[in-house]
Design a binder for these strands. Structure first.
Length: 213
DNA sequence: GCAATGATTTACT
DNA sequence: GTAAATCATTGCC
């Protein structure tokens, strides 16, 4: 009997931290796909919170949707020009922090935006950070929501994913290729035809995937 | 449905 | 140096 993919989980925090080599890969689209099913964790004091990544988007300096399009380096996006395996956190709409994983080697500005998690570790702590919710699926089902749930803010920009503050682990979960949905990215209409690139990936049928798509 | 919210960027002088 | 437009969204109406 096939396992329901309605809710994929649940792993624990004992999985293997992804090595730096994973992030140094040159194909950011492939990395965005491979991050589905991995777990993103943060540790603040002794509180570990985390969940399974169920939605990502790839961004590359070669296309207009990216902050670093055409190799334009600014104070905000400087982290993207460093080596892969670091966090790129920035503020959007003046209210929300968005968490990205820098990929590729130094001077090649690619990144993967983490858009949604299925929470499985430290859920009570995340609920406390998010405040009262009418629907439990709203806890981490959006890029701004998950950073708030995990306690991520702008000070985390540039943090290494090889340390014990924020990291991504392989908890052994495998997402079948046929259960990965690809589609256009959210909220980048200004990118012209690059907005049509099918660089948003999510887990088919998972209730924690953001509503925006 | 749409207002709120503020950092960042860009286009000027 | 200054100002206006822009924005990888959310949450409340």
């Amino acid at each position: 009997m096939p396992k329901s993919n309605h809710s994929i989980i649940t792993a624990n925090a004992s999985g293997l931290k992804l090595p730096e080599s994973f992030y140094l890969g040159t194909n950011v689209v492939r990395i965005a796909r491979e991050l589905l099913g991995k777990s993103l964790y943060t540790r603040i004091d002794d509180t570990v919170t985390g969940g399974t990544i169920v939605e990502t988007e790839a961004y590359s300096w070669k296309e207009r949707g990216c902050h670093a399009y055409d190799n334009r380096k600014t104070a905000r996006n400087a982290v993207m020009f460093g080596p892969g395996g670091h966090a790129y956190v920035y503020m959007c709409y003046g209210i929300h922090f968005l968490f990205n994983v820098v990929t590729n080697t130094a001077e090649t500005a690619d990144a993967v935006l983490i858009r949604a998690l299925e929470p499985h570790t430290g859920v009570a702590a995340m609920e406390e950070r998010r405040g009262k919710l009418t629907n439990r699926f709203h806890l981490t089902s959006g890029p701004g929501k998950l950073t708030r749930a995990l306690g991520i803010d702008r000070l985390w920009n540039g943090a290494s994913l090889q340390q014990d503050k924020v990291w991504i682990a392989d908890d052994g979960l495998r997402i079948r290729r046929s259960d990965i949905v690809a589609g256009p990215r959210i909220g980048i209409d200004y990118a012209g035809e690059d907005a049509l690139l099918p660089w948003r990936f999510s887990v088919r049928g998972n209730p924690w995937v953001s509503k925006a798509g």
